[in-house]
């Protein structure tokens, strides 16, 4: 875990490594990259295995994880989370591990279901890809790795802001050539 750059703005999320916490139950959500972090967490706190329920998104199920529900892709995550929260009680702890896009989306869905922000931990695994929302047409682009990027909804070239919405689980993309139509700089890779 590298410390967050000092120039990050306050709405930019920081993702600490997952820490075991006491709780009646644990809901864990990960993608292929995050599954390793869950395995490490469960090795560190074997007691969690008894109450953990794992939603594994678009990944082969590793043999060392208990109670895994495979989720084919992020588009199926909302229904999977709603199902996993059926009958959930106070004290549930959520552990999210994976790409920024996955954990941002999962956090947004959990908050929308009424979970308290303090009961959700997140660990980012993998590259710098960001989940972006186009501020103009509101289309979400799940894994943006270049800046500027082309909005899959409206086709505008958007620059990648650091401003982040927990509710949307996304950073903000804004038209880069609004003042000078057609003048789009060469895209570069997003820094981690």
């Amino acid at each position: 875990m590298t410390p967050a750059p000092a120039n990050r703005i306050p709405s930019h999320p920081t993702y600490a490594p997952l820490q075991p916490r006491p709780g009646h139950a644990a809901l864990m959500i990960a993608d292929a990259g995050g599954a390793v972090a869950l395995a490490q967490l469960l090795a560190q706190a074997p007691d969690l295995r008894a109450t953990a329920r794992i939603l594994l998104v678009a990944a082969d199920v590793p043999p060392d994880l208990p109670a895994v529900t495979p989720v084919p892709g992020t588009e199926a995550l909302e229904a999977a989370i709603a199902g996993a929260l059926q009958g959930a009680r106070m004290g549930l702890q959520a552990y999210l591990a994976g790409s920024q896009g996955l954990i941002g989306q999962a956090q947004a869905l959990l908050l929308a279901q009424g979970m308290a922000p303090g009961a959700i931990q997140m660990q980012q695994c993998g590259g710098p890809a960001r989940r972006m929302q186009c501020v103009h047409c509101k289309t979400i682009a799940p894994d943006v790795v270049i800046d500027p990027y082309r909005c899959p909804g409206c086709g505008r070239w958007l620059y990648v802001r650091d401003h982040f919405s927990r509710r949307l689980g996304a950073f903000q993309g804004v038209c880069i050539d609004a003042e000078t139509p057609g003048l789009v700089p060469e895209p570069t890779e997003i820094a981690p």
């Binding site: 703005i9 306050p10 501020v135 650091d162 401003h163 919405s165 927990r166 509710r167 949307l168 903000q172």
Partner: peptide
């Protein structure tokens, strides 16, 4: 600034893009 993006944010979060003041 966008209400649709900022709704649900706390005081520090919605002011995050302001330079220097923090």
């Amino acid at each position: 600034w966008s209400l649709d993006f900022d709704i649900g944010m706390n005081f520090f979060e919605w002011h995050a893009p302001v330079p220097r003041a923090a």
